[in-house]
Design a protein around this nucleic acid. Structure first.
Length: 822
DNA sequence: AGCACGCCGACT
DNA sequence: GTCGGCGTGCTC
């Protein structure tokens, strides 16, 4: 019997119920090198479209009667996916209900992920006479290929001629030997450069005689002013989609120029710190010794380090990491937001030199690949980074530190919806390592586990270097309104800002809303301007003059009359960061004001540049959204103002209150470090609200005591797990039917199951924002114990449903213990 | 997710 | 008659 090599491959973009290893024939030339852990390109489906996949097994067996398709291409000469990665992938598949290859893509760094494309060329030129022998469609395609310049044009041609039964025509010509196919692997994006749009010479010289749509006109005029801008900036300032730029690119009006960007890691040395000179305070040293004791046991354990803002947690981290690498082990230093990495990286680099690697999503793909290789080859032993850094390919992990562990950014909000904390725990078990969670405002769940003794608790109660906690004042906005103050900055805060300006000290103001006005309403008929694609009010942006939707990016010019009743009485109300910026300029014309929000920080380096400038004292006042609130050290800031402390208190999900407490506590903690005493003013309509009160006192423990009672009474985590199943689609009825259908599958399968599964399903109900980005969303909320039997049961239900017709054109997502958004 | 197959209505 | 719209089923 003839024997042959067979590769078992998980392929990309698999449907949920069809996500299993597929068998492929291994061609002779790959038989020696193709191994488990190599990625391949295989033909898949009816049209034999190329798809990436990962080899999980290569076996020798007898030729099956059914002819197998061959592996088309071996991407990696050697396995890139380690055994631990396979275990992590499996863990993610089981716990987040993603497909196998989704997990693979998440674990490998972006830079390693190539795109596969095929390019077609004619084997020779044909005359018009010869073309008579071909069918109409074949003729068209050959004619096109004779004059086409690029592969891109061909893709467009095929796309626009759907009627051409594209693959068939192409395939027939390949069989006839008229077209030659070459496969190309190309890197998704070029390294270390950013793309900018610029008007072309041909356009500027007036050679092109084109008519523009209003949106295109807008883009062209914008670029005439600013010369170059990133595609994202163009889209924002012209209030158009990114497709408009692409169209103009095709027309030859725009061109892409690439600009070199600096590499992050080699920024100038700003820290003159040395390891041997770093002295811990008595309290820091106590905590350090306690954690070292934990490390010395070399078993998987979790510690929770609770330290008030400014208690010098980072010094403890550094000392711990120093010890871990001295032992020949590796360590992680995870931070919640990209904006926090530069400061941390610079500090770590100055202390530990080249053994520090950086990993976060806004590195270029090439940089990510470089760092990945450095880690894999043992050249780096410390990783500083955000969520995705947890997958760094270390082989002997000693310690994983997660700073601000309660931050929601540690949880991925797109598939696979993993939580970095859970991956960290998994890896700690693999390596017998310690996971150290740290925060001034731990998550309720973690604190609960610490209370129960599941986590080891360590506490830092004193601020470093005898700095005192800021003096905090609550400002009652009701009283402020009665006294006739129309500004969004209270009288008291205004005076304090002035005082700070006089003393040449800096001020931070937190305003958790971007835009200028947050609502527009007609005073005659009451019509509120809403987004046509979302259940959301439009926000007025003065930067570009448009009313914008913050959920889908929709934008319209601000109308002068009501679109409903044509009255001219449109009232703009509600404050955003742009409005505050304006007010500050009016109140303090001489002050240098820096605004930071999603609209001003498009570029990868905008954060660093702006934070650096502020730290250097180039600005007096920093106004921004939550991105300015967390973890950064500004020694000269002595005043913090929270302009709308109430905004998060009434959020529809159970973690809203916790988030608000954390935000206020953290931003208040920015004020007054080192020798200077800080002040903080919290503006609120409900000064009596306990959450605000606790945050003002920086009193996490009392807040916890209060909150845990609610969680228990209403049965929320940590007393159960929350499993959110979301259905979304363009068609209202289909989404509803699918959600109903899933509910009955849940019930039915629950009865059939042999295992005992107890859970409480609620819904389906419409999502808090029912319509978003044109899609309708319904959800089922399940309170459960997320254990093995529940996971198996839910997976089973998902598999059944993905086969059902009712779920066509409705997408189903599962989110465990998430924030109930998305 | 795509893609092909196949069944039915509109139009040359 | 035939083109092409859309519902349905399959993917080693």
């Amino acid at each position: 019997v003839a024997e042959c090599w067979i590769a078992k491959v998980y392929v990309d973009k698999a449907v949920y119920h069809f996500d299993k290893p597929f068998s492929y024939f291994v061609p002779q030339e790959m038989a020696k090198t193709l191994k488990r852990g190599c990625r391949v390109v295989v033909p898949f489906g009816n049209g034999n479209r190329r798809r990436q996949g990962i080899v999980v097994e290569v076996v020798q067996q007898e030729q099956p009667e059914k002819q197998l398709k061959p592996v088309f291409l071996q991407i990696d000469r050697e396995p890139v996916f380690s055994e631990e990665m396979f275990r992590i992938a499996h863990f993610m598949v089981v716990n987040t209900f993603c497909t196998y290859y989704d997990a693979v893509k998440t674990i490998l760094p972006g830079g390693i992920q190539m795109m596969v494309s095929q390019s077609y060329t004619l084997t020779r030129q044909y005359t018009e006479e010869e073309l008579g022998d071909f069918s109409y469609e074949q003729r068209n395609l050959i004619r096109f290929l004779q004059q086409a310049k690029s592969q891109k044009e061909l893709d467009l041609y095929l796309l626009e001629n759907k009627a051409a039964k594209k693959q068939q025509v192409v395939d027939s010509l390949i069989t006839m030997g008229v077209i030659a196919v070459t496969d190309q692997m190309k890197q998704k994006v070029s390294d270390k450069t950013v793309s900018l749009y610029r008007l072309t010479e041909t356009y500027l010289s007036g050679e092109l005689d084109l008519k523009f749509t209003p949106k295109q006109r807008e883009v062209v005029e914008f670029l005439e002013q600013v010369v170059t801008a990133t595609p994202k900036e163009v889209a924002y300032f012209c209030a158009v989609g990114e497709s408009v730029g692409k169209t103009l690119l095709k027309k030859g009006v725009l061109e892409v120029v690439t600009k070199e960007v600096y590499r992050i890691p080699d920024a100038e040395k700003k820290f003159e710190e040395r390891l041997d000179e770093m002295i811990l305070s008595k309290e820091q040293n106590r905590v350090y010794e306690e954690i070292v004791h934990l490390l010395d046991q070399h078993t998987a354990q979790v510690g929770l380090l609770y330290g008030v803002t400014g208690s010098g947690k980072t010094q403890v981290f550094i000392k711990l990491i120093e010890r871990v690498i001295q032992n020949g082990q590796q360590a992680f230093m995870l931070v919640p937001e990209i904006s926090l990495t530069p400061q941390m990286v610079e500090r770590f680099k100055s202390l530990f030199g080249d053994s520090v690697a950086v990993m976060h999503s806004s590195l270029s793909l090439g940089e990510r690949l470089d760092e990945f290789k450095r880690i894999r080859d043992g050249k780096a032993s410390i990783v500083v980074g955000t969520r995705s850094a947890i997958f760094a390919p270390f082989e002997n992990i000693g310690l994983i530190i997660m700073d601000e562990e309660g931050e929601s950014s540690y949880k991925s909000d797109s598939s696979p919806r993993y939580h970095a904390r859970e991956i960290a725990k998994f890896r700690c078990v693999e390596h017998n390592a310690v996971l150290l969670l740290a925060s001034a405002t731990p998550s309720i769940e973690s604190w609960y586990k610490a209370q129960k003794g599941v986590y080891h608790l360590f506490t830092l109660r004193e601020r470093y270097a005898n700095a005192r906690l800021p003096e905090v004042y609550l400002v009652d906005l009701k009283a402020e309104e009665k006294s006739g103050n129309r500004s969004s900055i209270s009288q008291m805060l205004q005076k304090e800002i002035q005082k700070n300006l006089d003393q040449k000290e800096q001020t931070i103001l937190l305003m958790n809303r971007r835009g200028y006005h947050t609502a527009a309403q007609c005073m005659e008929c009451g019509e509120v301007m809403k987004c046509p694609h979302c259940d959301a009010a439009l926000t007025y942006h003065r930067d570009n003059g448009y009313m914008m939707c913050h959920y889908c990016g929709y934008a319209v010019l601000k109308p002068s009359v009501c679109p409903n009743c044509s009255s001219g009485h449109i009232r703009l109300s509600g404050m955003g960061t742009q409005k505050i910026e304006d007010e500050l300029r009016m109140l303090y014309p001489a002050a240098r004001v820096l605004r930071m929000d999603a609209d001003t920080t498009y570029s990868r380096y905008a954060y660093t540049e702006k934070f650096d400038a502020f730290r250097k004292g180039e600005y007096d006042i920093l106004i921004g959204t939550q991105m300015i609130a967390k973890g950064l050290d500004f020694p000269n800031v002595t005043l913090v103002g929270v302009l709308n402390a109430d905004s998060g208190l009434y959020a529809p999900d159970f973690r809203g209150v916790e988030r608000e407490f954390s935000l206020i506590t953290q931003v208040v903690g920015r004020s007054g470090r080192a020798e200077k005493l800080g002040r903080a003013y919290i503006q609120t309509y409900v000064p009596e609200n306990p959450v605000i009160q606790f945050a003002a006192k920086q009193d996490f423990e009392s807040f916890y005591e209060d909150e845990i009672v609610c969680r228990k009474a209403l049965l929320y985590p940590p007393f159960c797990d929350m499993c959110m199943i979301c259905f979304s689609g363009l068609n209202v009825d289909r989404v509803h039917v699918a959600a109903q259908c899933f509910t009955s599958i849940l019930k039915q399968q629950g009865k059939l199951s042999e295992e005992k599964i107890s859970f409480q399903a609620m819904g389906p109900v419409k999502a808090a924002m029912y319509k978003m980005n044109g899609k309708f969303r319904e959800r089922i909320m399940i309170k459960c114990k997320f254990n093995g039997s529940f996971k198996r049961y839910l997976k089973h239900c998902l598999e059944i449903s993905s086969k059902e017709k009712a779920f066509h054109s409705v997408s189903v997502t599962v989110d465990i213990n998430g924030d109930a958004n998305g």
